[in-house]
């Protein structure tokens, strides 16, 4: 197994874990964490691709590395925004659920009575 395959498999695993977490965890904070796991998987894959695509004599392809930094900043801002919203939601309502599934039905969807 080459290093690239190893990292690729790890990335796939992280992406799978993240997607699973986003789908099944009802709590928003866990969803935010799952989003970060998923993101890390994507970034790891990008890093592996950068290493594989290195020109002769270079440690890695520089373009993915530049993009990676940007991607991490974007994911960081997204996390910050999500956590801030969640904190505010908790402050205002006293709960931190997303569910329009059962109890909070009326407040989420005022059209139904």
């Amino acid at each position: 197994m080459t290093l690239f395959t190893l990292f690729g498999l790890c990335a796939a695993l992280l992406v799978g874990l993240g997607l699973f977490g986003l789908m099944v965890n009802p709590h928003p904070l866990r969803k935010i964490l799952a989003f970060n796991v998923l993101g890390t998987g994507v970034f790891l894959l990008f890093g592996a691709i950068a290493q594989r695509g290195a020109a002769a004599g270079m440690g890695g392809d520089p373009v993915p590395q530049a993009l990676l930094i940007t991607g991490i900043v974007v994911a960081f801002s997204a996390t910050a925004l999500a956590v801030a919203l969640l904190q505010r939601l908790f402050d205002v309502t006293g709960t931190a659920t997303l569910a329009n599934d059962a109890p909070a039905q009326v407040s989420v969807n005022p059209g139904e009575e």
Binding site: L89, V92, L98, V108
Partner: peptide, 12 residues
Amino acid sequence: GETLRAALRYLL
């Protein structure tokens, strides 16, 4: 509260 929840759902 309800709009905050809608916003968080949208974002996630």
